[in-house]
């Protein structure tokens, strides 16, 4: 980072250069000067995003050993592996802002940083694997596509890679549900039951309504976010309703109907009490998800140490023979 006299504030030409870059929809890169608030907002958002990918492996990983066929198992394995990859792209983007990987992991397992609340809901049947692909990854795509143009270079580049892979996630989920809908009455009921549980939490993935989202204006001014939460939520609903019709499931919202005037679907009010309860740690699986992540981190400590010791010994051997 550039040396700045904090008492005097940043030099005006630094501020001007930053603001003009953002204004021209150009990208900020890691070693450019940036306001501390911009850096902090990015660290929080990218970390939360990375943590979501990592925790997001759990609800579906839960079904890996019980996949109904080898084909479904191979697909699910590839998908869960992708989530790990996405977490890693994002962690490395976040590290360019001067946070270490270790700090990020610690902030996740201590609860100092959050991850998407959707992963605090349980996966009770195999249909959930399909529903998560269709609705949860579908909502994620809505959120993520505009982030490919975010003002921070490394974040945007990570998002481009992620979006390319996310389309497979959504399509495999939808195809899984289509297959089940062509099956028995019992299988169709499983799909409907799963959609009933995941519809509202999927809408909550876009965050609080614009009125309760005080950081949005600043984030948009900085070019970090390109659309408000409510805009993206509406876009998701409009995209999803015809998909639900094609699939033959009912979305559990009696107020959902086409509004000719707006050219969009109207939908019911989200249960914001439930939203805030889950955000604050009171969801069905919050404690379990973090405990699992902590255990994986602690159980892996000897592997990390052994690899470090092996690397040091190899280096020593090379040094001796040289």
């Amino acid at each position: 980072m550039t040396a700045v006299d904090h008492a005097a504030g940043p030099a005006p030409e630094l501020v001007e250069s930053f603001e003009s870059t953002v204004r021209h929809h150009d990208r900020i890169e890691p070693r450019d000067w940036m306001p501390e608030g911009y850096r902090k907002t990015l660290v929080r958002q990218i970390a939360q995003h990375a943590h979501s990918e990592i925790i997001g492996m759990q609800p579906e990983g839960n079904w890996l050993t019980r996949a109904p066929s080898l084909r479904r198992k191979a697909i699910l394995l590839a998908k869960v592996q992708d989530e790990a990859g996405h977490g890693l792209y994002l962690y490395s983007a976040c590290e360019t802002l001067g946070v270490s990987r270790q700090q990020l992991t610690e902030m996740l397992i201590s609860g100092a940083q959050k991850y998407s609340s959707i992963f605090n809901y349980p996966t009770l049947s195999y249909a959930d694997v399909g529903t998560i692909g269709w609705l949860v990854d579908g909502a994620a795509i809505c959120n993520q596509v505009p982030l490919c143009r975010t003002s921070y270079g490394p974040y945007g580049r990570a998002m481009i890679r992620i979006c390319k892979e996310e389309s497979f996630h959504q399509r495999q989920g939808y195809e899984l549900l289509m297959t089940m809908m062509r099956g028995t009455d019992e299988q169709r009921a499983m799909v409907q039951e799963s959609v009933d549980r995941f519809w509202w939490p999927s809408l909550m993935m876009f965050g609080p309504s614009d009125a309760d989202s005080p950081n949005t204006a600043q984030s948009m001014e900085w070019g970090i976010k390109r659309h408000t939460n409510d805009e993206l939520r509406q876009r998701f609903v409009d995209m999803t309703v015809p998909q639900a019709e094609a699939l033959g499931v009912t979305l559990p919202d009696p107020e959902l109907r086409w509004n000719d005037e707006r050219g969009s679907y109207d939908f019911g009010e989200i249960d914001w009490d439930e939203f805030w309860t889950v955000v604050k740690g009171g969801g069905p699986c919050n404690a379990q998800r973090i405990a699992h992540r902590r255990r994986a981190w602690e159980d892996g400590a000897w592997v990390r140490e052994a690899a470090t010791a092996f690397a040091a010994r190899q280096q020593g051997a090379e040094g001796a023979s040289a």
């Binding site: 592996q81 890693l88 792209y89 690899a307």
Partner: peptide, 19 residues
């Protein structure tokens, strides 16, 4: 394309392949 952590060069290559 990005970065990653690894204990040594060989592990970095392997991780790069996977990531």
């Amino acid at each position: 394309v990005g970065s990653l952590h690894a204990a040594d060069d060989q592990m970095a290559l392997r991780h790069a392949r996977d990531v």
